[in-house]
């Protein structure tokens, strides 16, 4: 990963070409578990963004002090500390949203995406780039969660952000818990299809 990337490139990479949910297929548990509404996706996205950015910056600052052999435990403890912070903050100031997300806020500590970014990026690159990389990955996760939430909320209850837009409920099935698997699978297939279609149209030119 070259140093000359601008902040904008780092952010768009996290959202599009290396989207944590649809491209890297990491951190799938919340994408299936609590993506029933756009709001849920947004709230958990904020929590992940916070943890990702702060852990990336922390590791990037201390990267020269951390001995390579104990780097993984260090990453884990850093993430756990920031997760504790966001967990307590959400529980104190947004108890309703926190109750909806349940155990998933605490489980951010086991998300593969955060550890992976620390290992691949933050332990080598300067603080500024790590910040933007964490920002990109966090935003990518948030966008992915909100996209799944959008599809499920629109098709399942005919609403967006709690406001009734369709006036009827097209497919109640999508709001049921087990539909999370189907929605994620179908959306992945849809993005694959777009990619194949795009490449084919380019090839034809």
């Amino acid at each position: 990963m070259a140093n000359d990337k601008s902040s904008l490139q780092l952010i768009t990479r996290g959202i599009l070409s290396e989207n944590p949910i649809f491209k890297l297929a990491l951190s799938m548990c919340p994408a299936v578990g609590i993506s029933t509404t756009v709001m849920n996706g947004f709230m958990l996205g904020v929590a992940v963004l916070f943890v990702q950015v702060f852990s990336s910056v922390t590791i990037s600052i201390f990267k020269n002090v951390i001995h390579p052999r104990i780097r993984i435990p260090t990453y884990t403890l850093t993430i756990a500390t920031w997760v504790t912070v966001i967990d307590l903050v959400l529980a104190a100031y947004l108890p309703e949203a926190y109750a909806k997300m349940g155990i998933f806020v605490k489980l951010i500590v086991a998300f593969a995406i955060i550890t992976m970014r620390l290992e691949m990026f933050a332990c080598k690159e300067p603080v500024k780039d790590s910040f933007w990389d964490g920002m990109g990955m966090g935003l990518g996760f948030m966008v992915g969660m909100m996209a799944i939430g959008f599809v499920r909320e629109l098709l399942g209850s005919g609403a967006i952000l709690g406001y009734d837009v369709l006036g009827f409920k097209p497919l109640l099935f999508f709001i049921l818990p087990s539909a999370g698997f189907f929605v994620v699978g179908l959306m992945m297939a849809f993005f694959n299809w777009i990619e194949v279609y795009y490449k084919r149209s380019k090839g034809l030119k």
């Binding site: 818990p177 539909a179 698997f181 189907f182 699978g185 694959n192 194949v196």
Partner: peptide, 20 residues
């Protein structure tokens, strides 16, 4: 399997059926 469903997408749909 249709090429766009190969790999993870079809695995997700199978898992969804198991969940049901």
């Amino acid at each position: 399997i249709p090429p766009t469903f190969k790999g993870l997408p079809i695995a997700f749909i199978v898992a969804g059926q198991f969940a049901m």
